[in-house]
Write a protein that binds this DNA or RNA. Structure first.
Length: 966
RNA sequence: GCGGAGGUUGCCAAGCCUGGUCAAAGGCGUAGGACUUAGGAUCCUAUUCAGUAGUGAUUCGCGAGUUCAAAUCUCGCCCUCCGCACCA
């Protein structure tokens, strides 16, 4: 058990007992912070901890800044994952059971208990409830300042009512639509499949081909392609001679496609009737007609045709497709097998390759170039051909221009014309769409090959509905995104967001009110729930039943529509309670800051913005989104299956909550991926120990409120100044979400300062103690957001009866910031390091004394004068400036030295204000210097140095003393 | 492919927006010292190279450019990582 664990448990108990983080509306300024609720189908790991910890740090900081902070949490359980796992457990799936057991062992000691708990996972709710409970405990154990009264799960009936209301709103706006939509689909299960359902090809997506309908006999030969613009270069059709093709009636037309393709068309919401089945050879030798000019084109045999890919019908563009080029070449060279199809060798040899795309750096036939470049000799060299195809596709798409044999598209760039060609063919009924998975194989867990299914009647949200995007853009443009660099991810998401299914036919969730076969899917039911937090605790406490949550209830509470009286009649909820809820919503909303990981930008966060603008008035839109990246484990990606994760539940005991919190805010900037490195953890722990040691030592003293006039050592002035500078900096860091800078400054920099200060023996004991007590008071407040447990402990040791969690953020005592003292300190330190450097080089000689020569007064005046003049760093100007003044001109030659030095150093350096200050400060510090170096220290004025055997005094400059060692 | 992020001194990681004060914060590691002799605790110092005086030289993926001045700005190139839709 970690050494901090006892302290942590103690304060967690107290916080909970005193309801410290339960926030209710009051007269203070409010701050409503949310972090997305966790998905409760398993235990969380250390990576989740980063985001929640940052969220908690922000909440705690804001609280100390005097805000009434609401930081709530709920549990997400809708969708397929929980249900899926339960189903698999019930079905006896060994992998699923083992995975759950692994999670359960974290919470139970014996295998019996684990098994007993597993037995209880008979439905999604019981499973979710268990993990919701343990995650709550885990969060508490990390010191998160959450108001748990407002907890709910997305499977709760009252939450379903809320989502029902949300979708009624979308329906009213006309944003909710129904239509055809392609999805990966398992023909055996007769269900759409998601990543979790797949055995192989988990990253597969739906790829859309253009199916071109080439006129043939009384119907069409249907060829699927990604390059519809190449229809102008067609020279022939490729059909596999030995495979089965069909004549089918498809939506009332006669199509020829391969047999497997015909099956696929059925899944793709086509009305398909197979008329006749035949071998490919039957149509080889016949001709079909071109799209653009109806000339007759031959059908030739090709064994490279894969009837399982797309339609199994391939139109050939040898000028621009390497596969076609090499296949045609093969036939022309050896036409011997063709006579059985009634094709004469002359006919094949007579086929002219058509060049239809002009592209720089290639000949008339780019396909030929690419094939020859790779030395490809046969159509069997798949890999090389694939590579050549990629090259040509890319080059032609970006740089190609249609030649003048391309009808109305002549002279146009390919990239512009592609869509237009499709549109044109659509207008003359020559195209359709054909879907395929973008990779093979894709296999369902049931073992079946996955196909693309087009769902008729799929419900989706149409993000391109008139006006919706405009409003969302408005919200985004006015929203703070921190770090700002993530904004463009939102922008690109907004740009490509079109239609998106929002319901499926399985899983846990809210039934779509208009079509109860459908269940609202889990990304679509978690977008405006921040509003639900504002009233959730009232609903549970007052045992409001789902039935009472009628649409008018939400209209009233969230939108202020209608009257409480009317809602009372319909819902039976008391007017008083209604008003309380309405007021509470009004108080907390909008959500001031939503904090999460950037991976949610492309879906959840964008939806949250869209859904807010759809439902709420502008004043209730999300104000700010902040983000931190995910976490890696020892340089590698973390994943449960790899087993390289650390469960959240183990953190407090293994490391300590405060250690973890410190690590997680200080190891990387929010915008970069953090690496968890076990061997760095002890360093963090040691810092906290040092902090504890110092606190333990000085918390018993009374901090004297130091007035500016108080007489004190130079080094005390320095320490007081530094501490206040740090308070100022840390405040700024936290305000601008630079939490790492905050952590490093408030922890490392402070420790360094305190150590240095304690080492300065010249400070009288009482002065040191009261100064240290003053510093500790600032310090304990400053670190409270990051390491709240330790800070509570020492806060109470300081004699406070209240909580540091609720204390005031350290006040900045501006008057104690003493730049002169800080600069002087820099001079001393740089003097020491200069002396060290000399000692290092003169190691052979024993030195006893160091003579320090401080520059003459007029030089300080000269430096100050340059500073005050705020001149650009141009030698001539500075020279002119100084020489214009008599008091400096008389030192002409030396003035030049100063200016040369300034030029060399590219600016002014730190120095004391006057020679007198510098001397007195160095004399004050001479004990310290002496102790550091083991030398006797003598400080001289340069202009009348009593002792200067090597006449070093003349080299001195303000802040750059000259030295003589003997 | 589309979109995005990034390559910094042994490792991790700041700095880059707002050029100079940057041989470049901080941590880890390593070395020396202090405390001392129990500590994998703490403190100090050092850690590109050269140098018998506080200095100089060469560095921030590669190459070029702008500038009095570039890790920082511009252009080109190489490499790595991430998201891409129905999936939380």
């Amino acid at each position: 058990m970690s050494e901090f664990a006892k302290i942590e448990k103690k304060w967690q108990k107290k916080w909970s007992k005193d309801h410290v983080f339960e926030a209710n509306p009051d007269s203070k300024k409010k701050f409503f912070l949310t972090v997305p609720y966790p998905y409760v189908n398993g235990s969380l790991h250390i990576g989740h901890g980063r985001t929640y910890t940052v969220g908690d740090l922000l909440a705690r900081y804001k609280r100390m800044r005097g805000f009434n902070v609401l930081f709530p949490m709920a549990s997400h359980m809708t969708g397929t994952p929980v249900q899926g796992m339960v189903d698999r457990i019930k079905a006896g799936d060994k992998m699923a059971i083992e995975q759950y057991k692994r999670d359960l062992r974290l919470y139970f000691k014996t295998e019996e208990e684990v098994d007993a708990q597993l037995m209880k996972f008979t439905d999604a709710w019981k499973t979710a409830a268990f993990f919701a409970k343990v995650i709550h405990q885990d969060f508490d154990a990390l010191g998160y300042s959450i108001d748990w009264r407002r907890h709910f799960t997305t499977g709760d009936p009252i939450y379903n009512e809320f989502i029902t209301w949300q979708y009624h709103k979308f329906m009213d706006k006309g944003y909710l639509k129904q239509g055809n939509y392609p999805l990966l689909y398992c023909p055996k299960d007769q269900n759409p499949v998601g990543e979790d359902d797949l055995l192989e090809g988990t990253s597969a997506k739906v790829k859309e081909f253009t199916a071109i309908k080439w006129p043939f006999e009384d119907g069409f030969l249907v060829a699927a392609t990604l390059r519809p613009e190449t229809i102008f270069g067609v020279t022939n059709m490729w059909i596999h001679p030995d495979k089965e093709y069909v004549w089918a009636e498809v939506d009332g037309e006669k199509w020829i496609v391969s047999k497997p393709a015909c099956e696929k068309l059925r899944l793709q919401a086509k009305d398909v009737k197979t008329l006749e089945s035949f071998s490919g050879s039957r149509i080889i030798g016949k001709t079909f007609r071109a799209i653009h000019d109806s000339h007759e084109i031959p059908i030739l045999p090709a064994e490279f045709v894969d009837v399982n890919n797309a339609t199994g019908v391939v139109y050939s563009v040898p000028g621009h497709a390497p596969f076609d080029y090499i296949a045609l070449l093969d036939l022309q060279e050896d036409p011997s097998g063709l006579d059985k199809y009634g094709i004469s060798p002359e006919a094949v040899r007579g086929i002219d390759i058509i060049s239809m795309i002009d592209i720089k750096g290639y000949s008339e036939y780019p396909a030929k170039d690419a094939v020859e470049k790779r030395g490809i000799n046969s159509q069997n060299e798949d890999e090389k051909l694939e590579d050549a195809t990629q090259e040509i596709y890319k080059a032609e798409f970006y740089e190609g221009v249609m030649k003048d044999n391309c009808a109305q598209f002549s002279g146009r760039p390919i990239r512009d014309v592609k869509e237009e060609v499709i549109e044109w063919m659509k207008s003359i009924n020559r195209v359709d769409v054909f879907y395929e998975p973008d990779q093979r194989p894709v296999v369902c867990k049931c073992g079946a090959d996955v196909q693309v299914g087009v769902f008729a009647g799929q419900w989706f949200l149409d993000y391109e509905s008139p006006g919706w995007k405009d409003k969302a853009w408005e919200a985004l443009n006015e929203m703070d995104i921190v770090p700002e660099l993530f904004r463009n991810l939102f922008e690109s998401t907004f740009n490509w967001l079109t239609q998106r299914p929002c319901a499926r036919k399985r899983g846990v969730g809210t039934k779509l009110p208009f079509d109860e076969e459908w269940i609202i899917e889990s990304l679509s039911d978690s977008t405006i729930y921040m509003a639900f937090y504002t009233i959730a605790h009232h609903l549970t406490k007052n045992k409001i039943r789902p039935k009472q949550l009628i649409m008018n209830f939400f209209d009233y509470v969230f939108l202020g529509k209608g009257t409480a009286k009317k809602v009372v009649e319909e819902s039976g909820i008391s007017e008083e309670l209604l008003k309380i809820m309405r007021d509470e919503f009004k108080y907390w909303y909008p959500n001031d800051q939503r904090h999460t990981a950037p991976s949610h930008i492309s879906n959840h966060l964008s939806f949250a913005i869209f859904h807010h603008v759809a439902i709420f008035p502008k004043k209730d839109w999300i104000q700010c989104i902040s983000l931190n990246e995910h976490m890696n484990m020892e340089g590698g990606k973390m994943s449960k299956s790899k087993g390289n994760t650390i469960p959240l539940v183990e953190i407090p005991d293994k490391y300590g909550a405060d250690v973890f919190r410190t690590y997680v805010v200080s190891a990387a900037e929010p915008a970069s991926i953090m690496d968890w490195r076990e061997r760095d953890v002890p360093a963090v722990r040691n810092r906290l120990r040092q902090f504890s040691d110092i606190m333990r030592k000085y918390s018993k003293y009374t901090p004297e409120v130091p007035s500016k006039k108080a007489k004190r050592s130079e080094i005390t002035k320095w320490a007081l100044s530094r501490v206040n500078s740090i308070v100022r900096d840390c405040t700024e860091y936290l305000e601008s979400f630079r939490i790492r800078d905050y952590a490093i400054t408030a922890m490392h920099e402070m420790i360094r300062i305190v150590n240095h200060y304690q080492n300065r023996t010249e400070v009288p004991k009482e002065e040191l103690e009261s100064t240290m007590a003053y510093i500790c008071d600032k310090w304990v407040r400053m670190l409270a957001p990051m390491i709240p447990h330790l800070c509570e402990e020492y806060w109470s040791k300081m004699g406070h009866e209240d909580y540091v969690s609720l204390a005031e953020w350290p006040r900045l005592d501006k008057a104690l910031i003493d730049l002169a003292a800080e600069r002087a300190h820099v001079v001393v330190e740089s003097t020491i390091s200069d002396i060290r450097e000399i000692l290092k080089l003169k190691r052979d000689k024993q030195h006893k004394t160091v003579h320090i020569y401080v520059a003459p007064s007029w030089m300080f005046e000269a430096m100050n004068s340059i500073r005050d003049a705020d001149l650009p760093m141009i030698v001539g100007d500075i020279m002119k400036h100084l020489m214009s003044k008599d008091e400096f001109r008389k030192h002409g030659k030396e003035v030049k030295n100063i200016v040369d030095r300034i030029a060399k150093e590219n600016g002014l350096w730190d120095h004391s204000t006057t020679a007198k200050d510098e001397i007195s400060m160095l004399r004050d510090s001479s004990n310290y210097i002496s102790k550091e170096l083991g030398l006797k220290v003598e400080v001289h004025k340069a202009e009348d140095a009593k002792y200067d055997p090597q006449s070093k005094a003349r080299f001195s400059l303000p802040g750059r003393v000259s030295l003589y060692l003997e």
